[in-house]
Write a protein that binds this DNA or RNA. Structure first.
Lengths: 196, 196
DNA sequence: CCCGTTGGTTTTCGCTTGATCAACAAGCGC
DNA sequence: GCGCTTGTTGATCAAGCGAAAACCAACGGG
């Protein structure tokens, strides 16, 4: 009946707690109680405070784990490779991007953080805009036969695809399990709109 | 120094509390403390429980106030009026729809509720889909020169415009203050995509 | 002008929260 | 197998939570 008291190397225990914390806070929200998290991680609540000085610090570590190094710089090179048709490039970018962010942890923690007023979202989206969406807009402008889009048009395309993840992970509505078809159709329609 | 104890007719007080509650829970989240709400409403915390039996009941009343009768059946008639060009009809629908939902209360409570797992979102979006978006899809299919869209295409258009509100009210990022231009461009592009 | 109805406040309860700390025991070096 | 380091626990605290109960006073009818 007494739970065996297993002793783990600190590195390993820390990672186990962070894994549990990411899934837990994604599900329950950023101010879900640390006691419930501890139960889920299979440790006592007090132990969390050996690895993290405060709940805020633990959350910061979760943010880092979920959002850092999730954007692959290689996507930018592929996006800029004008040997490849523009439609294939944009499609490939959004297939890679949605594959990276369409997880409960990414989508739900992002939304919880946004509502809570964390700066995470603004910083992240400004970076995404500058590092990927503006280059994407430039490639569209440079593509033969396309009118140059405004950044707001690109955000519109972006939102149309991210919304698929919102329906799936936030509202838990049924959505196509494979995002590739919706992506292909949305990108094709977007480009057709820039040609007309 | 002592706050004047003002006596209001119950109907009026109830409405004042609901007004404050909608703004308060939109800002702070559905499990923000009732004491803070009371302070904001200018009453004591205990008084809330004279007008609502529990916090859950108060939240239910807020949902009703924010989401009930917000969708105007007249939109459907306008959407189905084939004397008007399809582009004007879709544009007008989304101008009316975004005017109805682009408020902090609507957008933020909807997102808090979705994350909290409330049934509100599923019920609302299923109703919206059946009552407005499916007819919209039918009108697109019936419009001359357009390929019939899948429902998923319509949700894509829908999301591209709702995402504008998410950026503004959830992430608090700068967005065009007037939604009409983005709507016009998104709808025009969408239709062009269905023509190609 | 007084009095009863009832809107409003003060006080309190039982419970949960983030965080702390002394006590305990698992595992490695010897 | 011994003992020390240190990962882990149970007990505890002050603050904050939703809710209830007792008390107070504003207003209209007589």
């Amino acid at each position: 009946m007494t739970p065996p008291r297993r002793r783990l190397p600190p590195e390993e225990r820390r990672r186990a707690i962070l894994d549990a914390a990411a899934a837990f806070f994604a599900e329950e929200g950023l101010d879900a109680p640390t006691r419930d998290l501890a139960r889920r991680a299979g440790v006592t609540q007090a132990l969390l405070y050996r690895y993290f000085p405060s709940k805020a610090a633990l959350l910061e570590a979760v943010f880092e784990r979920v959002y850092l190094n999730r954007l692959d710089p290689a996507w930018l090179d592929a996006l800029r490779d004008r040997a490849v048709p523009i439609e294939a490039r944009v499609t490939a970018f959004y297939e890679a991007y949605t594959a990276a962010i369409f997880t409960p942890e990414w989508m739900r923690i992002f939304m919880w953080a946004g509502l809570a007023g964390e700066e995470l979202n603004r910083r992240y989206l400004e970076h995404l805009g500058a590092a990927f969406l503006r280059p994407l807009a430039e490639e569209l402008a440079a593509a033969p036969g396309l009118r140059a889009p405004e950044m707001e048009d690109v955000w519109n395309l972006h939102g149309s695809l991210v919304y698929l993840g919102i329906r799936r992970f936030i509202y838990r509505l049924p959505t196509p399990q494979d995002a590739r078809r919706p992506i292909a159709r949305a990108v094709a329609r977007f480009l057709a709109g820039l040609r007309a």
